[in-house]
Design a protein around this nucleic acid. Structure first.
Lengths: 152, 152
DNA sequence: CTGTGTGCAAACTCTTTGCATAAGT
DNA sequence: ACTTATGCAAAGAGTTTGCACACAG
């Protein structure tokens, strides 16, 4: 598979590689074989700047981009990427799981009536005085979700 | 229906009423008819201090407490209570929705390997330098979730 | 070649809905 | 009485699984 039609080669907003060769390298480093589907999905995910996307939406994009991939594989791939640290699952109260292509330290706006997630750089929120975690536990991560509603 | 056997009358940890009469009053003020099921569920929810509970678990409790109520009604009731401000839905990444009986300003620990939520008083976490919300939006709430893992 | 990844459809879990019955005011 | 709530079972979303086939190394 040569890096043909779809590969625009433009660097993603966060500087991630997004041509086929570099994506392949990233996948390999994460212990994932750079298969057609994984490369295509990675390309869709990482070549358009930071995004928050759910499985169905990504599957739809793939279909539109003429990348034949099953929904089950999209789910598998998203979870594999998440475990590998290429993506980050974001918890909002929607029943769907959203995956964030931005894995750097940051927080989120959640626009309630649109069910939409927007990044907030970590530098724009300060969380201090964190409580001690209970015995035998350590802090894995601190997520801040700023819930927004339409101004009345 | 007299307030008989099940009503222990002890005040909840957060000072919420938990005898039938007071619960009825609370429900009425929220625009909800104090039906048998709603009263029973309210009692289960509010008479044991702060809790984080999902629909199935509450349904199970109800069954054990010999309160015959259907799962569908439990879901309805939880959502009605949530809208009425009697409960607060908590978003963690589990697929289940948890409802927190503590509606005061506070945050959460999330214990990843147990899928369990624990309250953290708002006074123990300081969030400052919040970013400006986008045009026409206002901040409804700020949720902080401190994700915990077992210390290695 | 050999083992890992994929596709498909069916299964599963959590949640919601529709409609007849029951209960609250 | 009149209206709103409930129960049940069935449908619905989102997600996962099992197994035969396909592809990458």
């Amino acid at each position: 598979m040569t890096s043909a039609e779809g590969d625009t080669q433009k660097p993603a907003a966060d500087g991630f590689a997004c041509d086929t060769a570099q994506l392949g390298e990233r996948l390999r480093k994460a212990g994932l074989r750079p298969t057609r589907q994984r490369l295509s999905l990675a390309h869709l995910l990482f070549s358009k700047g930071n995004r928050h996307i759910c499985a169905e939406a990504l599957h739809e994009e793939a279909v539109l981009a003429r990348v034949p991939v099953s929904l089950a594989t999209v789910y598998n791939t998203l979870h594999q990427f998440n475990e590998a640290g290429l993506l980050r699952a974001v918890a909002v109260e929607s029943s769907k799981t959203y995956f964030d292509t931005n894995t750097s330290d940051h927080h989120h706006f959640f626009i309630e009536h649109e069910n939409r997630v927007v990044d907030v750089p970590a530098s724009h929120i300060n969380v201090t005085d964190l409580p001690e975690p209970p015995e035998g536990m350590e802090i894995a991560r601190v997520d801040v979700i700023v819930r927004l509603r339409e101004k009345s």
